[in-house]
Design a binder for these strands. Sequence first.
RNA 1: GGAGGCGUGGUGUAGUCGGUUUAACAUACUGCCCUGUCAAGGCAGAGAUCGCGGGUUCGAGUCCCGUCGCCUCCGCCA
Length: 453
Amino acid sequence: MRLGRTRVIVLATRGIRLSGGVLMQRTLAAEVPGRVGERVLLKGWAHAVRMLGKVGFLVLRDRSGAVQAVLEDQERTLRALPAGSAVALRGVVAKEPRAIGGVELRQVELELLSPAAPALPFEVNRPEIAAGLDALLDHRVLSLRHPRTAAVFRVQAELVRAFREGLRARGFLEVHTPKLVATGTEGGAELFSVDYFGRPAYLAQSPQFYKQMLVVAGFERVFEVGPVYRAEDHDTSRHLNEYLSLDLEMGFVDGLDDLLELEESLLEEMFAAVTAHAADALELWGAEVPRVRGIPRLRLDEARALLKTCCGHETPAGNLDPEGERLLSARVASEHGSDFVFITHYPAAARPVYALPDPSRPDLTLSFDLLFRGLEVTTGGLRIPCGETLRCRMRERGLDPTNFAPYLEAFDYGMPPHGGMAIGAERLTMKLLGLANVREASLFPRDRARLAP
RNA sequence: GGAGGCGUGGUGUAGUCGGUUUAACAUACUGCCCUGUCAAGGCAGAGAUCGCGGGUUCGAGUCCCGUCGCCUCCGCCA
Protein backbone atom coordinates (compact mmCIF):
# COMPACT_ATOMS: atom_id res chain seq x y z
CA MET A 1 0.00 0.00 0.00
CA ARG A 2 2.96 2.33 -0.18
CA LEU A 3 2.28 3.39 -3.73
CA GLY A 4 -0.10 6.30 -3.94
CA ARG A 5 -1.79 4.70 -6.85
CA THR A 6 -2.62 1.50 -4.96
CA ARG A 7 -4.05 3.53 -2.17
CA VAL A 8 -6.50 5.24 -4.47
CA ILE A 9 -7.71 1.90 -5.83
CA VAL A 10 -8.37 0.60 -2.32
CA LEU A 11 -10.33 3.71 -1.47
CA ALA A 12 -12.30 3.46 -4.66
CA THR A 13 -13.48 -0.04 -3.82
CA ARG A 14 -14.56 1.00 -0.34
CA GLY A 15 -16.15 4.33 -1.08
CA ILE A 16 -18.62 5.38 -3.68
CA ARG A 17 -18.62 8.24 -6.14
CA LEU A 18 -21.91 10.10 -5.99
CA SER A 19 -22.92 13.05 -8.14
CA GLY A 20 -20.53 15.36 -6.36
CA GLY A 21 -17.63 13.17 -7.34
CA VAL A 22 -16.30 13.05 -3.79
CA LEU A 23 -15.18 9.75 -2.32
CA MET A 24 -16.66 8.94 1.06
CA GLN A 25 -16.31 6.10 3.51
CA ARG A 26 -19.43 4.15 4.21
CA THR A 27 -21.19 4.64 7.54
CA LEU A 28 -23.43 1.97 9.06
CA ALA A 29 -26.93 2.77 10.24
CA ALA A 30 -26.00 1.92 13.82
CA GLU A 31 -23.18 4.49 13.71
CA VAL A 32 -25.39 7.34 12.58
CA PRO A 33 -26.42 8.60 16.07
CA GLY A 34 -22.77 9.30 16.78
CA ARG A 35 -22.27 11.34 13.61
CA VAL A 36 -24.63 14.27 14.16
CA GLY A 37 -23.75 17.20 11.95
CA GLU A 38 -21.59 15.14 9.61
CA ARG A 39 -22.18 14.31 6.01
CA VAL A 40 -22.28 10.52 5.68
CA LEU A 41 -22.67 7.80 3.09
CA LEU A 42 -25.02 4.91 3.84
CA LYS A 43 -25.67 1.78 1.86
CA GLY A 44 -28.41 -0.73 2.36
CA TRP A 45 -31.95 -1.54 1.38
CA ALA A 46 -35.00 0.69 1.16
CA HIS A 47 -36.88 -0.97 3.99
CA ALA A 48 -39.89 1.32 3.81
CA VAL A 49 -40.83 4.30 1.67
CA ARG A 50 -43.52 6.70 2.85
CA MET A 51 -44.74 9.67 0.83
CA LEU A 52 -46.52 12.74 2.16
CA GLY A 53 -46.78 15.04 -0.78
CA LYS A 54 -43.60 17.02 -1.10
CA VAL A 55 -41.86 15.31 1.78
CA GLY A 56 -41.00 11.66 1.80
CA PHE A 57 -39.42 9.26 4.25
CA LEU A 58 -37.14 6.42 3.41
CA VAL A 59 -36.10 3.92 6.07
CA LEU A 60 -32.77 2.43 5.12
CA ARG A 61 -31.78 -0.89 6.63
CA ASP A 62 -28.32 -2.40 6.54
CA ARG A 63 -26.68 -5.22 8.47
CA SER A 64 -26.35 -3.05 11.55
CA GLY A 65 -29.86 -1.63 11.82
CA ALA A 66 -32.07 1.05 10.31
CA VAL A 67 -32.12 4.82 9.95
CA GLN A 68 -34.62 7.25 8.50
CA ALA A 69 -33.86 9.65 5.69
CA VAL A 70 -36.01 12.64 4.79
CA LEU A 71 -36.34 13.58 1.14
CA GLU A 72 -37.98 16.87 0.25
CA ASP A 73 -39.18 17.68 -3.25
CA GLN A 74 -37.99 14.34 -4.56
CA GLU A 75 -41.37 12.77 -5.20
CA ARG A 76 -40.42 11.45 -8.58
CA THR A 77 -37.31 9.71 -7.26
CA LEU A 78 -39.17 8.09 -4.41
CA ARG A 79 -42.07 6.96 -6.57
CA ALA A 80 -39.59 5.10 -8.77
CA LEU A 81 -38.12 3.32 -5.75
CA PRO A 82 -39.73 -0.02 -4.94
CA ALA A 83 -39.44 -1.15 -1.33
CA GLY A 84 -36.60 -3.60 -0.94
CA SER A 85 -34.28 -1.99 -3.48
CA ALA A 86 -30.57 -1.68 -2.80
CA VAL A 87 -29.63 1.99 -2.42
CA ALA A 88 -26.85 4.36 -1.47
CA LEU A 89 -27.68 7.54 0.40
CA ARG A 90 -25.58 10.57 1.12
CA GLY A 91 -26.85 13.15 3.58
CA VAL A 92 -26.30 15.14 6.71
CA VAL A 93 -27.07 13.59 10.09
CA ALA A 94 -29.41 15.73 12.15
CA LYS A 95 -30.93 15.41 15.60
CA GLU A 96 -34.67 15.02 15.25
CA PRO A 97 -36.88 14.04 18.19
CA ARG A 98 -39.69 13.09 15.81
CA ALA A 99 -37.55 10.38 14.23
CA ILE A 100 -37.20 6.96 15.82
CA GLY A 101 -33.73 6.81 17.31
CA GLY A 102 -33.60 10.59 17.57
CA VAL A 103 -31.59 11.17 14.39
CA GLU A 104 -32.33 11.28 10.69
CA LEU A 105 -30.60 11.98 7.41
CA ARG A 106 -31.29 15.26 5.62
CA GLN A 107 -30.25 16.92 2.36
CA VAL A 108 -30.29 13.46 0.93
CA GLU A 109 -28.90 12.33 -2.39
CA LEU A 110 -30.29 8.95 -3.34
CA GLU A 111 -28.71 6.48 -5.72
CA LEU A 112 -30.57 3.37 -6.79
CA LEU A 113 -28.00 0.58 -6.85
CA SER A 114 -30.36 -2.23 -7.76
CA PRO A 115 -34.15 -2.14 -7.85
CA ALA A 116 -36.42 -4.69 -6.21
CA ALA A 117 -39.45 -6.06 -8.00
CA PRO A 118 -42.40 -3.68 -7.66
CA ALA A 119 -44.52 -6.27 -5.85
CA LEU A 120 -42.77 -8.55 -3.38
CA PRO A 121 -44.20 -11.99 -2.49
CA PHE A 122 -44.88 -10.69 1.02
CA GLU A 123 -44.17 -7.58 3.05
CA VAL A 124 -41.01 -7.65 5.12
CA ASN A 125 -41.30 -4.11 6.46
CA ARG A 126 -43.94 -4.97 9.07
CA PRO A 127 -43.63 -6.09 12.68
CA GLU A 128 -44.55 -9.62 11.59
CA ILE A 129 -44.48 -11.21 8.18
CA ALA A 130 -48.01 -12.23 7.21
CA ALA A 131 -47.19 -15.33 5.20
CA GLY A 132 -47.25 -19.06 5.68
CA LEU A 133 -44.12 -21.06 6.39
CA ASP A 134 -44.07 -22.44 2.87
CA ALA A 135 -44.08 -18.96 1.35
CA LEU A 136 -41.34 -17.85 3.75
CA LEU A 137 -39.13 -20.76 2.77
CA ASP A 138 -39.89 -20.49 -0.94
CA HIS A 139 -38.65 -16.88 -0.86
CA ARG A 140 -36.01 -17.34 1.82
CA VAL A 141 -33.73 -14.47 0.82
CA LEU A 142 -36.65 -12.16 1.31
CA SER A 143 -38.00 -13.59 4.57
CA LEU A 144 -34.47 -13.41 6.00
CA ARG A 145 -34.59 -9.64 5.41
CA HIS A 146 -37.05 -9.40 8.26
CA PRO A 147 -35.28 -8.55 11.53
CA ARG A 148 -37.18 -11.21 13.44
CA THR A 149 -36.27 -13.92 10.97
CA ALA A 150 -32.67 -12.79 10.84
CA ALA A 151 -32.56 -12.78 14.65
CA VAL A 152 -33.00 -16.56 14.67
CA PHE A 153 -29.68 -16.98 12.93
CA ARG A 154 -27.84 -14.42 14.99
CA VAL A 155 -28.89 -16.44 18.03
CA GLN A 156 -27.87 -19.70 16.39
CA ALA A 157 -24.49 -18.24 15.45
CA GLU A 158 -23.87 -17.30 19.09
CA LEU A 159 -24.84 -20.77 20.28
CA VAL A 160 -22.44 -22.38 17.83
CA ARG A 161 -19.63 -19.93 18.55
CA ALA A 162 -19.89 -20.48 22.30
CA PHE A 163 -20.01 -24.24 21.79
CA ARG A 164 -16.75 -23.99 19.86
CA GLU A 165 -15.08 -21.65 22.29
CA GLY A 166 -16.19 -23.62 25.32
CA LEU A 167 -14.76 -26.83 23.95
CA ARG A 168 -11.55 -25.24 22.72
CA ALA A 169 -11.05 -23.87 26.22
CA ARG A 170 -11.40 -27.40 27.57
CA GLY A 171 -8.75 -28.84 25.28
CA PHE A 172 -10.99 -30.14 22.51
CA LEU A 173 -9.78 -30.05 18.91
CA GLU A 174 -12.18 -29.01 16.19
CA VAL A 175 -12.25 -31.64 13.46
CA HIS A 176 -13.96 -32.16 10.13
CA THR A 177 -14.94 -35.69 9.24
CA PRO A 178 -16.14 -37.04 5.87
CA LYS A 179 -19.76 -36.64 4.93
CA LEU A 180 -19.40 -39.21 2.16
CA VAL A 181 -19.12 -42.59 3.85
CA ALA A 182 -19.16 -46.28 3.02
CA THR A 183 -21.29 -47.45 5.96
CA GLY A 184 -23.77 -46.00 8.38
CA THR A 185 -23.46 -45.97 12.14
CA GLU A 186 -26.77 -47.63 12.85
CA GLY A 187 -26.87 -50.29 10.18
CA GLY A 188 -27.92 -48.55 7.01
CA ALA A 189 -31.68 -48.15 7.15
CA GLU A 190 -31.92 -44.39 7.19
CA LEU A 191 -29.10 -43.37 4.87
CA PHE A 192 -29.12 -41.32 1.69
CA SER A 193 -27.46 -43.24 -1.11
CA VAL A 194 -24.87 -41.65 -3.33
CA ASP A 195 -23.22 -42.97 -6.46
CA TYR A 196 -19.49 -42.76 -5.68
CA PHE A 197 -17.75 -43.46 -9.00
CA GLY A 198 -19.95 -46.50 -9.50
CA ARG A 199 -19.63 -47.72 -5.92
CA PRO A 200 -22.43 -47.39 -3.38
CA ALA A 201 -21.82 -44.70 -0.78
CA TYR A 202 -23.90 -42.74 1.70
CA LEU A 203 -24.25 -39.34 3.27
CA ALA A 204 -23.06 -39.52 6.86
CA GLN A 205 -25.91 -39.68 9.36
CA SER A 206 -23.47 -38.93 12.17
CA PRO A 207 -19.73 -38.35 12.67
CA GLN A 208 -19.89 -40.96 15.43
CA PHE A 209 -17.33 -43.48 14.19
CA TYR A 210 -14.85 -40.83 13.12
CA LYS A 211 -15.11 -39.00 16.44
CA GLN A 212 -14.24 -42.22 18.28
CA MET A 213 -11.41 -43.00 15.89
CA LEU A 214 -9.94 -39.56 16.52
CA VAL A 215 -10.07 -40.10 20.27
CA VAL A 216 -7.84 -43.16 19.96
CA ALA A 217 -5.75 -41.36 17.35
CA GLY A 218 -4.44 -39.36 20.27
CA PHE A 219 -6.48 -36.20 20.16
CA GLU A 220 -8.46 -37.45 23.20
CA ARG A 221 -11.02 -34.68 22.86
CA VAL A 222 -12.59 -33.68 19.57
CA PHE A 223 -15.66 -31.80 18.44
CA GLU A 224 -17.31 -31.09 15.16
CA VAL A 225 -19.92 -28.65 13.95
CA GLY A 226 -21.30 -30.01 10.75
CA PRO A 227 -24.28 -31.29 8.81
CA VAL A 228 -25.65 -34.79 9.21
CA TYR A 229 -28.14 -36.49 6.96
CA ARG A 230 -31.14 -38.60 7.88
CA ALA A 231 -33.16 -40.27 5.15
CA GLU A 232 -36.04 -40.80 7.58
CA ASP A 233 -39.39 -40.44 5.92
CA HIS A 234 -40.62 -38.32 8.79
CA ASP A 235 -42.59 -35.16 8.32
CA THR A 236 -43.05 -33.24 11.55
CA SER A 237 -42.39 -29.81 12.98
CA ARG A 238 -39.23 -31.08 14.70
CA HIS A 239 -37.51 -33.13 11.98
CA LEU A 240 -35.11 -32.15 9.23
CA ASN A 241 -33.41 -34.46 6.77
CA GLU A 242 -30.25 -32.38 7.00
CA TYR A 243 -29.42 -30.69 10.26
CA LEU A 244 -26.51 -29.10 12.05
CA SER A 245 -25.03 -31.43 14.64
CA LEU A 246 -22.93 -30.10 17.50
CA ASP A 247 -20.89 -33.21 18.17
CA LEU A 248 -18.23 -33.96 20.72
CA GLU A 249 -16.33 -36.99 21.95
CA MET A 250 -13.86 -37.26 24.82
CA GLY A 251 -11.48 -39.95 25.98
CA PHE A 252 -10.51 -40.95 29.52
CA VAL A 253 -13.90 -40.17 31.01
CA ASP A 254 -14.64 -41.53 34.48
CA GLY A 255 -18.39 -41.91 34.08
CA LEU A 256 -21.65 -40.66 32.72
CA ASP A 257 -21.60 -37.73 35.13
CA ASP A 258 -18.57 -36.30 33.31
CA LEU A 259 -20.68 -35.96 30.19
CA LEU A 260 -23.73 -34.55 31.92
CA GLU A 261 -21.66 -31.97 33.76
CA LEU A 262 -19.86 -31.03 30.56
CA GLU A 263 -23.12 -30.45 28.75
CA GLU A 264 -24.51 -28.43 31.61
CA SER A 265 -21.49 -26.15 31.60
CA LEU A 266 -21.51 -25.83 27.83
CA LEU A 267 -25.18 -24.95 27.63
CA GLU A 268 -24.74 -22.39 30.38
CA GLU A 269 -21.93 -20.74 28.40
CA MET A 270 -23.87 -20.94 25.14
CA PHE A 271 -26.93 -19.24 26.59
CA ALA A 272 -24.75 -16.66 28.31
CA ALA A 273 -23.19 -15.85 24.94
CA VAL A 274 -26.62 -15.31 23.40
CA THR A 275 -27.61 -13.06 26.28
CA ALA A 276 -24.37 -11.09 25.98
CA HIS A 277 -24.23 -10.72 22.21
CA ALA A 278 -27.76 -11.14 20.87
CA ALA A 279 -30.03 -9.82 23.62
CA ASP A 280 -32.00 -7.80 21.08
CA ALA A 281 -32.62 -10.94 19.04
CA LEU A 282 -33.98 -12.69 22.12
CA GLU A 283 -36.23 -9.73 22.79
CA LEU A 284 -37.67 -9.85 19.27
CA TRP A 285 -38.92 -13.33 20.06
CA GLY A 286 -39.84 -12.62 23.65
CA ALA A 287 -37.51 -15.46 24.57
CA GLU A 288 -36.43 -16.17 28.12
CA VAL A 289 -33.05 -17.74 28.61
CA PRO A 290 -33.51 -20.68 30.95
CA ARG A 291 -31.50 -21.45 34.04
CA VAL A 292 -29.18 -24.33 33.23
CA ARG A 293 -27.44 -25.26 36.49
CA GLY A 294 -28.80 -28.22 38.41
CA ILE A 295 -30.58 -30.09 35.63
CA PRO A 296 -32.61 -32.91 37.22
CA ARG A 297 -31.50 -36.41 36.25
CA LEU A 298 -33.96 -39.24 35.92
CA ARG A 299 -33.39 -42.81 34.89
CA LEU A 300 -35.71 -43.82 32.09
CA ASP A 301 -37.60 -46.29 34.28
CA GLU A 302 -38.05 -43.56 36.92
CA ALA A 303 -39.33 -41.19 34.27
CA ARG A 304 -41.80 -43.74 32.97
CA ALA A 305 -43.04 -44.50 36.49
CA LEU A 306 -43.41 -40.79 37.22
CA LEU A 307 -45.41 -40.27 34.05
CA LYS A 308 -47.73 -43.08 35.02
CA THR A 309 -48.35 -41.94 38.59
CA CYS A 310 -48.45 -38.19 37.99
CA CYS A 311 -49.94 -37.87 34.55
CA GLY A 312 -51.58 -41.22 33.98
CA HIS A 313 -49.51 -41.49 30.85
CA GLU A 314 -48.29 -44.92 29.72
CA THR A 315 -45.18 -44.81 27.58
CA PRO A 316 -43.92 -47.65 25.46
CA ALA A 317 -41.05 -49.58 27.05
CA GLY A 318 -37.57 -48.47 26.08
CA ASN A 319 -38.27 -44.87 25.20
CA LEU A 320 -40.46 -41.87 25.85
CA ASP A 321 -42.99 -40.97 23.20
CA PRO A 322 -43.28 -37.31 22.23
CA GLU A 323 -46.34 -36.85 24.39
CA GLY A 324 -44.41 -38.37 27.31
CA GLU A 325 -41.50 -36.03 26.67
CA ARG A 326 -43.79 -33.02 26.79
CA LEU A 327 -45.60 -34.16 29.94
CA LEU A 328 -42.38 -35.01 31.71
CA SER A 329 -40.79 -31.67 30.82
CA ALA A 330 -43.83 -29.81 32.10
CA ARG A 331 -43.74 -31.82 35.31
CA VAL A 332 -40.04 -31.18 35.88
CA ALA A 333 -40.51 -27.49 35.15
CA SER A 334 -43.24 -27.12 37.76
CA GLU A 335 -41.56 -29.34 40.36
CA HIS A 336 -37.93 -28.32 39.98
CA GLY A 337 -38.10 -25.08 38.00
CA SER A 338 -35.91 -26.56 35.29
CA ASP A 339 -36.61 -26.31 31.56
CA PHE A 340 -34.22 -29.23 31.10
CA VAL A 341 -34.18 -32.82 32.25
CA PHE A 342 -31.62 -35.55 31.67
CA ILE A 343 -33.01 -39.03 31.02
CA THR A 344 -30.43 -41.77 31.56
CA HIS A 345 -30.07 -45.55 31.41
CA TYR A 346 -31.86 -46.38 28.20
CA PRO A 347 -32.22 -50.07 27.36
CA ALA A 348 -29.47 -51.46 25.15
CA ALA A 349 -32.07 -52.54 22.62
CA ALA A 350 -33.12 -48.92 22.10
CA ARG A 351 -29.59 -47.65 21.59
CA PRO A 352 -26.88 -48.05 18.96
CA VAL A 353 -24.49 -51.02 19.16
CA TYR A 354 -21.66 -48.95 20.57
CA ALA A 355 -23.57 -47.83 23.70
CA LEU A 356 -21.83 -49.02 26.89
CA PRO A 357 -23.92 -51.34 29.08
CA ASP A 358 -24.34 -50.51 32.76
CA PRO A 359 -22.19 -53.08 34.65
CA SER A 360 -24.87 -53.42 37.33
CA ARG A 361 -27.70 -53.73 34.81
CA PRO A 362 -26.32 -55.12 31.53
CA ASP A 363 -29.68 -54.69 29.82
CA LEU A 364 -29.35 -50.93 30.30
CA THR A 365 -26.77 -48.54 28.89
CA LEU A 366 -24.85 -45.65 30.37
CA SER A 367 -26.47 -43.26 27.95
CA PHE A 368 -28.64 -40.17 28.15
CA ASP A 369 -30.96 -37.83 26.34
CA LEU A 370 -31.50 -34.21 27.25
CA LEU A 371 -35.02 -32.85 27.00
CA PHE A 372 -35.42 -29.09 26.63
CA ARG A 373 -38.95 -27.72 26.97
CA GLY A 374 -40.46 -31.00 25.92
CA LEU A 375 -38.13 -31.86 23.06
CA GLU A 376 -35.09 -34.10 22.81
CA VAL A 377 -32.14 -31.88 21.93
CA THR A 378 -29.18 -34.11 22.82
CA THR A 379 -28.29 -37.76 22.79
CA GLY A 380 -25.08 -39.06 24.29
CA GLY A 381 -23.42 -41.62 26.44
CA LEU A 382 -20.43 -43.74 27.17
CA ARG A 383 -19.19 -46.08 24.41
CA ILE A 384 -18.00 -49.66 24.45
CA PRO A 385 -14.17 -49.40 24.43
CA CYS A 386 -13.56 -53.05 23.51
CA GLY A 387 -13.44 -54.19 19.89
CA GLU A 388 -14.30 -57.80 20.65
CA THR A 389 -17.42 -56.82 22.60
CA LEU A 390 -18.46 -54.57 19.72
CA ARG A 391 -18.06 -57.42 17.22
CA CYS A 392 -20.30 -59.64 19.37
CA ARG A 393 -22.95 -56.94 19.65
CA MET A 394 -22.88 -56.36 15.91
CA ARG A 395 -23.40 -60.03 15.20
CA GLU A 396 -26.28 -60.12 17.68
CA ARG A 397 -27.93 -57.41 15.64
CA GLY A 398 -27.31 -59.07 12.34
CA LEU A 399 -24.54 -56.66 11.34
CA ASP A 400 -21.41 -57.99 9.68
CA PRO A 401 -18.33 -56.69 11.57
CA THR A 402 -16.23 -56.92 8.41
CA ASN A 403 -18.27 -54.02 7.04
CA PHE A 404 -16.99 -51.92 9.93
CA ALA A 405 -13.36 -53.02 9.80
CA PRO A 406 -11.78 -49.53 9.65
CA TYR A 407 -13.82 -48.46 12.68
CA LEU A 408 -13.11 -51.63 14.63
CA GLU A 409 -9.41 -51.38 13.93
CA ALA A 410 -9.36 -48.29 16.14
CA PHE A 411 -10.09 -50.56 19.10
CA ASP A 412 -6.90 -52.52 18.52
CA TYR A 413 -4.71 -49.59 19.51
CA GLY A 414 -5.61 -48.83 23.10
CA MET A 415 -9.06 -47.25 23.06
CA PRO A 416 -9.55 -45.43 26.36
CA PRO A 417 -12.88 -45.22 28.19
CA HIS A 418 -14.71 -42.56 26.26
CA GLY A 419 -18.06 -41.00 25.53
CA GLY A 420 -19.69 -38.06 23.83
CA MET A 421 -22.86 -36.48 22.64
CA ALA A 422 -24.57 -34.65 19.82
CA ILE A 423 -26.72 -31.55 20.16
CA GLY A 424 -29.20 -30.63 17.45
CA ALA A 425 -28.46 -26.98 16.71
CA GLU A 426 -31.78 -26.20 15.05
CA ARG A 427 -33.79 -27.87 17.79
CA LEU A 428 -31.89 -25.99 20.48
CA THR A 429 -32.45 -22.71 18.65
CA MET A 430 -36.11 -23.54 18.10
CA LYS A 431 -36.79 -24.28 21.74
CA LEU A 432 -34.79 -21.33 23.02
CA LEU A 433 -36.79 -18.90 20.88
CA GLY A 434 -40.11 -20.71 21.06
CA LEU A 435 -40.34 -21.34 17.31
CA ALA A 436 -43.27 -23.45 16.22
CA ASN A 437 -41.36 -25.37 13.56
CA VAL A 438 -37.73 -26.48 13.40
CA ARG A 439 -37.64 -25.41 9.75
CA GLU A 440 -37.69 -21.81 10.97
CA ALA A 441 -34.32 -22.46 12.63
CA SER A 442 -32.74 -23.61 9.37
CA LEU A 443 -31.66 -21.15 6.70
CA PHE A 444 -32.51 -23.49 3.85
CA PRO A 445 -34.22 -26.52 5.40
CA ARG A 446 -34.23 -29.92 3.77
CA ASP A 447 -37.31 -31.97 4.45
CA ARG A 448 -39.22 -34.77 2.78
CA ALA A 449 -40.60 -32.39 0.15
CA ARG A 450 -38.17 -29.49 0.09
CA LEU A 451 -34.87 -29.61 -1.80
CA ALA A 452 -34.81 -25.98 -2.92
CA PRO A 453 -33.97 -23.24 -2.34
C1' G B 1 -44.66 -45.90 6.17
C1' G B 2 -49.49 -44.61 8.91
C1' A B 3 -53.60 -41.04 10.73
C1' G B 4 -56.22 -36.44 10.59
C1' G B 5 -56.88 -31.58 8.44
C1' C B 6 -56.41 -27.76 4.65
C1' G B 7 -55.95 -25.90 -0.75
C1' U B 8 -60.14 -19.06 -2.70
C1' G B 9 -56.29 -12.45 -6.38
C1' G B 10 -48.86 -11.55 -4.92
C1' U B 11 -49.58 -12.47 0.55
C1' G B 12 -52.98 -13.52 4.79
C1' U B 13 -58.07 -14.71 5.40
C1' A B 14 -63.99 -14.80 4.90
C1' G B 15 -67.64 -17.39 2.22
C1' U B 16 -68.40 -24.40 2.53
C1' C B 17 -75.65 -28.45 5.85
C1' G B 18 -75.57 -26.36 -3.11
C1' G B 19 -79.09 -21.30 -5.42
C1' U B 20 -79.70 -12.89 -4.42
C1' U B 21 -72.88 -11.41 -5.35
C1' U B 22 -70.73 -8.83 -10.70
C1' A B 23 -66.72 -14.41 -5.13
C1' A B 24 -65.95 -10.57 0.13
C1' C B 25 -62.10 -8.32 3.62
C1' A B 26 -57.06 -6.73 4.86
C1' U B 27 -52.46 -5.76 2.85
C1' A B 28 -49.27 -5.34 -1.26
C1' C B 29 -49.54 -3.23 -6.47
C1' U B 30 -51.06 1.22 -10.15
C1' G B 31 -52.83 6.49 -10.44
C1' C B 32 -54.20 11.03 -7.84
C1' C B 33 -54.24 14.21 -3.02
C1' C B 34 -51.34 15.29 1.29
C1' U B 35 -44.54 18.87 4.51
C1' G B 36 -43.46 14.74 9.98
C1' U B 37 -44.63 9.73 8.46
C1' C B 38 -42.89 5.54 11.27
C1' A B 39 -48.69 -0.93 10.72
C1' A B 40 -49.16 6.69 7.81
C1' G B 41 -54.02 8.67 5.96
C1' G B 42 -57.81 9.86 1.95
C1' C B 43 -59.94 8.93 -3.12
C1' A B 44 -59.96 5.87 -7.48
C1' G B 45 -58.29 1.39 -10.10
C1' A B 46 -56.35 -3.23 -11.71
C1' G B 47 -55.78 -8.22 -9.95
C1' A B 48 -58.84 -15.09 -8.45
C1' U B 49 -62.70 -19.07 -14.15
C1' C B 50 -62.07 -20.70 -5.77
C1' G B 51 -55.02 -26.51 -6.76
C1' C B 52 -56.01 -30.01 -10.97
C1' G B 53 -59.20 -33.96 -13.35
C1' G B 54 -63.74 -36.44 -13.35
C1' G B 55 -68.70 -37.16 -11.32
C1' U B 56 -73.73 -35.99 -8.93
C1' U B 57 -77.34 -31.90 -9.88
C1' C B 58 -81.80 -27.63 -13.23
C1' G B 59 -77.59 -25.29 -10.54
C1' A B 60 -70.94 -26.78 -7.43
C1' G B 61 -65.95 -22.35 -4.34
C1' U B 62 -69.65 -25.37 -1.42
C1' C B 63 -71.37 -32.54 -2.25
C1' C B 64 -68.70 -37.38 -4.09
C1' C B 65 -64.25 -39.91 -6.29
C1' G B 66 -59.29 -39.50 -7.93
C1' U B 67 -54.80 -36.79 -8.10
C1' C B 68 -51.15 -33.17 -6.73
C1' G B 69 -49.50 -29.71 -3.05
C1' C B 70 -49.35 -28.06 1.98
C1' C B 71 -50.07 -28.43 7.46
C1' U B 72 -50.29 -31.19 12.09
C1' C B 73 -49.46 -35.68 14.54
C1' C B 74 -47.53 -40.93 15.10
C1' G B 75 -43.43 -44.57 14.26
C1' C B 76 -38.04 -42.98 14.33
C1' C B 77 -34.81 -39.54 15.69
C1' A B 78 -31.02 -34.26 17.16
